[in-house]
Design a protein around this nucleic acid. Sequence first.
DNA 1: TTGTATGCGTTATCAT
DNA 2: ATGATAACGCATACAA
Lengths: 338, 338
Amino acid sequence: MPPPRIRNRRATINDVAAAAGLSRGTVSRVVNGERYVSDGAKTAVEDAIARVGYVRNSAARNLVTRESRAIALIIHEPHSLLFEDPNIGSILLGANAVLSKADYQLVSLIIDSDRDSRRVADYLRGGLVDGAVIVSARASDPIASAVRDIGVPSAFVGHPPGTPDLPYVAIDNKGAARTITERLAGTGRQRIGMIASAMDRDSGYDRFTGFRDALGARFDASLVVEYPLYTYAAGIEGMQELLRRCPEIDGIFAASDAVAAGAMTVLQESGRRVPDDVGIVGFDDSSWALRTRPQLSTVKQPADSLGRTAAELVLAQIRGLPSVAQVLDTTVVWRDSA
Amino acid sequence: MPPPRIRNRRATINDVAAAAGLSRGTVSRVVNGERYVSDGAKTAVEDAIARVGYVRNSAARNLVTRESRAIALIIHEPHSLLFEDPNIGSILLGANAVLSKADYQLVSLIIDSDRDSRRVADYLRGGLVDGAVIVSARASDPIASAVRDIGVPSAFVGHPPGTPDLPYVAIDNKGAARTITERLAGTGRQRIGMIASAMDRDSGYDRFTGFRDALGARFDASLVVEYPLYTYAAGIEGMQELLRRCPEIDGIFAASDAVAAGAMTVLQESGRRVPDDVGIVGFDDSSWALRTRPQLSTVKQPADSLGRTAAELVLAQIRGLPSVAQVLDTTVVWRDSA
DNA sequence: TTGTATGCGTTATCAT
DNA sequence: ATGATAACGCATACAA
């Protein structure tokens, strides 16, 4: 019969000290790998730890050190985007990679309701994280201003208008859109339209204005349709509408690869050949681009780097270094759809 | 000129008590909404809080209450799946929904290296979360046994063989695969093959055995190809290989919708008609299924419910209630691809 | 190199 | 209903 021991009581530093015949201070020092511990003490503590099964209590440690060594990544997306947007996974992995190397734990918080929004704000305020990267906040997003008020080191991925003036990392959506639109126009297309999406976000709005600028006088507002999300379904509907409005349309800029894929399906079902009859270009260079036939010409967005850079911006602030907004380069990947 | 105040020092409960002319105890009581506080004290405290800008320190609170009111969701996936697998987003949202209602914060931790694996284990051990749901752990995944050893309330989504005997929620992959294979066979197909994936995971292995069982004596091992991931690319390659081995093949069970989509592309490019020449079925009922032409017949997997149920299993354990493994129902969605 | 003592900001117990 | 006081488990400045 085992001795009547109190369950549910984790070993503390005191237990280790007692078992090792040393003081709490020494135990703490070896646990934190500090200098000034004799080899004897070190090994004594180490196996005392093993014997009593000690693991240090993070809450107590955070309380005294006033840091958590954790960074939040806040995702505020409509449902469907969480499944469709290929960038978000890359951003997450990129951020995780640099934080992991710096020995910070990335914790992802998702906001899917107002209740979530408040709880996440409390989480940040409570000191459970030392910083935050906010991905895809829309203008007037309450979490954006909450982050600013709380004053926790932070960085935005993307730069929605109306967002507090905090560090961010973004791509030049407008310039990239202009470039690829010009390239499309350069293939001799006469009637170029756009399936725009997410106009309430910087990415969507900027891609549209880039498109408009590139076309200049040739821009025709009736050849632009607009949908809330960057989805395949938006591509389907958008292309149908565009075909209805102008059957002779011969060039399409889709706001994302998923949208382009949907549009291409409609185009081909209508008997049109791509790129012979209609040229089409997308945006993202996601796995969608390789899935269409012909493969998509598109803009390569460095999603992984967006995540990495955002993480670096936060780390810089934590270390008291200056941290300034960054705009990352994009490149055009020209394949066979235009 | 503002008074020389020390920056970076958050107000504590003491500051509030002083400002309100009350004791810490009373302040704590109103902060936590407890009974036995006079209305006068309540309002006095409330505006003292507003005046000094008090927010409670979670670390200190967690230390004394011995709970964090947070639940971890651990994602251990190869890179590509994080982008391709539509289920994971639904699982996450489902879990978040039930935890949010119970006023728990869901924190997602991703494991992308051994270093991550260790850090996440430390995070769990440190008491920063009260429970954990583990999604898609593979057999021999170190995090699985770590969770068991740590003894934190937990639940697995899926049930890989070799996994510690802990609560889980899964679907009957084998039964579902058997059912849809029988259905496919029922359309009169003579040579039925399978593009299998992720055989090192319960889902992949069970879908294969279900397929084999359904065919019984008609099972032909040479008509099965196997790939590590549930991807579109696996579908492309797998179908090419199958066509090479047996050009007369007329039925395909793809291990997921993404795989099926890739296979269908190859089939159609080879001049075969679906479903006239070849019938094909998938698994998941993800957005892929609606994207192919014709649309895919497939198995609907209740990803959202998987997340919800896993969260409920964890909450039950926290509350000291019994928590038993669950197997959720799937349904066949019959469209036009077979 | 090691030990001691103090404090981190809360909650909880026990008086009052 | 409110106030004192003692933990919670750890890090750290200082003494030894």
